[in-house]
Amino acid sequence: MAAPESGDGNNGAARMVTLISSDNTRFEVEAAAASLSQTLQLTILDGGGGGGDGIPLPNVDSATLSKVLEYCIKHAPAAANGGAPNATAVDRAELERFDNEFVNIDQSVLYSLIMAAHNLEIEGLQSLVAKKVADMIKGKSPMEIRRTLGFPDPTPEEQAEMNAHMLEYGWAYE
């Protein structure tokens, strides 16, 4: 018993691990969910994170970590059975709906998330957030992009550089 399997459903409570954010908040989460992080997966396979110790994550604050775990918990079942085979169209649509809503958040949170996803090596989350930011950029003019991303108005010097660049790369403006 107590085999350190990431539970794919055969009875008993799933194995739990504890994660500790940079501001010392403890999160208890199923090992299967935490294992979406390649970084954590290695620690967990080595038997870390159980019992009292917990895995410290000095680069991730509690607000970001709870958001990350929300993603992991939602995506863990699909990841466990390899994504495709058992997933019905309904499940996939539900995940997609979740993802769309999940990234509907402030830019500051998006950037914290992408850094956390990078640190923890959660590929799905990293590309989800990167795609969201890319979508905020697409089809916009440079000035619209600046406004969207919260740049201040360009200084005359910056404006001149922008004009020169636009002139040179005219094909991007057709």
Binding site: Q126, V133, I145, M162
Partner: peptide, 25 residues
């Protein structure tokens, strides 16, 4: 964001023209 994360984002804008306009920013 560090450069590699910016790259990750820029690789996902749909067209090269978008990348060109981002470069103007």
């Amino acid at each position: 964001l560090a450069d590699d994360l910016l790259e990750d984002i820029l690789l996902r804008v749909p067209t090269l023209a978008d990348v060109g306009r981002v470069a103007t920013v």
